[in-house]
Amino acid sequence: MDFGGINPVILIATLMASAVPILLAALGETVVERAGVLNLGVEGMMVIGALGGFIVAVQTGSPVLGFIGGALAGAVLSLIFAALTQVFLANQVATGLALTLFGLGVSSLGGQGYNGIKPPPTEQLLPDALADLPVVGPIFFGHDWVVYFSIAMTAVLWWVLKATRVGLIIRAVGESHEAAHALGYKVNRIRLMCIAFGGAMAGMGGAYVSLARVPQWVDGITAGAGWIALAIVVFASWRPWRVLIGAYLFGGITVLQLNLQVAGSVIPVEYLSMAPYLITILVLVIMSAGRKANGAPAALGQNFHASR
């Protein structure tokens, strides 16, 4: 089952793992943006999560605790953003960018002494008997728990946003904070919680880079994944399942272009390496064409101050 030397089963299995950091971070940011907050600091929260997760995992020897540590680190950093934008009503775009700068700096300072260490491994979840099944084995059963967690979170968030009261409140706050406020919801408190959730998810995504994908700590390890996560949220029109599709599409093309290179493709390398970005744009164009609204929460990026 090869196409030009590339095995599609392995390709799919690989992209599912390589998309996890972007997927987790983008899911978190989806919730944040659905609540009307634009946090451009995803990269900063991811890298701090990568470090936090790494340190906890190395100190405790438990990768699971590591992921929790990563989530906590990301959430704590996001609280700075939350305080600035929700309490001090600072501009969200600028604060988010400053958060990235700050997060990169803090992680680099805090990470001194953690270079060249191997963290405890994050193992395959299911037994080999399942993972070795042809075709379905590698795709469905051969992953570590975080891959399943990321898919489960997609489903959970889809359900929460669509069908629960919590989701309704979040969406209300994001569409019209005035109206939500009039209904008696504490807009800024709800947004603060969403921001913290987004921070935790980004932190976990970062931890997946330093604990499973690469496993190691080096300065700036996330290398721009946070920016891609931001783009994926827009790509997905703020809907969880589309976030998954977007992350898999982007991750898939990235993996595919590297595989094509190995297989000796005739397409010049530089076009291959542009492909993930160009194809993402192309797909977005096709998806958005003809539709009036792009699904952005109406109050996205606007701060709210309860005048009474």
Binding site: L84, F88, N91, T95, L97, F102, S108, L109, H305
Partner: peptide, 26 residues
């Protein structure tokens, strides 16, 4: 000083500039 310390410092400066700005309108 490590370059990272300067980055953190710049981040702080931005945070404070953005936060204190609230006093203009509130």
């Amino acid at each position: 000083l490590p370059d990272a310390a300067i980055q953190v410092f710049q981040g702080m400066l931005l945070f404070f500039l953005l936060a204190v700005d609230v006093l203009t309108n509130y």
